[in-house]
Design a protein around this nucleic acid. Structure first.
Lengths: 143, 143
DNA sequence: GTCAATCTGTTAGGTGTCTATCGGTTTCGG
DNA sequence: CCGAAACCGATAGACACCTAACAGATTGAC
């Protein structure tokens, strides 16, 4: 029998990521936040970042995009930015009390989303999926 | 030993899709096109679409977004739009000769990209990946 | 037969991302 | 020490995507 002529792998991957991202966006919006804000908050919370460049890399976006979000978050009172006295090129980004409150609200939504996403997948399934995704990333990594 | 506290599944998925999409974008750009244009062309080529709504669904975008791309593609001379005489609400979208030429150029790039993406994955790996991705889509599907 | 509901596609406005470029700051070679 | 290079973050402009609201065309209930 001829092979079933599947969907190109990239299309399948993109559709899945789009659906999952959309569901996550909705969950975070219902909790009063957004995906980029959540990623920034959790990065700031889990370990201190030396500078914005490092923070951008942790979040997986470009520095210019991060600036955009930090501006909005600063206006919303979630973070503060101040010059590092030791190196005046660097901006130190710090969570405010409001930022901390938002972090906890979004964490609840994020944990619930991850639980939903993993539903019905054994530990072995999850490990296998992580392995396959890692391989895909290697395959498309720039030479 | 404690479990290694992996990356949330959604983050892993999003990062992989972003990297793969980016690589695909670059490949298509080098061939003189773009990802949305490619998806529209292949949808039009593989089977006739009854209307734009169906086309948008095949591509995986909203109708309004499709309109945007069709406007650009019409300006670029890749497609033509005309009213269906049988139902004047419907726009019939058709490829021009230039659209067909672009389609073939992009197909070469797309096939090469898919080959690169699958590199090192056995048929069993690919089937397993497709199964796992399908499960994730089910998990996040709206109730 | 007429008018409201529905269907199709467009327009308007907003978000998130990118690249390219710039201004301010530090470092370091000569 | 001083000026070029490197570094950090911000700004400008662009693109793809979304939702909401709209206009033209058709259908169908009365």
């Amino acid at each position: 029998m001829p092979k079933p002529d599947r969907q190109p792998l990239g299309v399948d991957l993109a559709r899945t990521a789009k659906a999952a991202t959309r569901a996550f966006d909705d969950a975070l919006a219902a909790a009063g936040g957004s995906r980029p804000v959540w990623l920034i908050l959790i990065s700031l919370k889990t370990r201190a970042m030396a500078n914005q460049r490092e923070l951008a890399e942790a979040v997986g976006i470009q520095g210019a995009t991060l600036t955009h979000h930090l501006n909005a978050m600063e206006s919303a009172g979630l973070i503060t930015r101040r010059r590092d006295p030791a190196n005046r090129r660097v901006h130190l980004v710090e969570l405010t009390a409001a930022g901390d409150t938002t972090f906890h609200a979004l964490r609840t939504a994020a944990v619930e989303h991850d639980r939903r996403l993993r539903d019905g997948l054994s530990d072995a399934d999850q490990a296998e999926l992580a392995r396959l995704l890692a391989r895909l990333r290697e395959n498309v990594a720039p030479a």
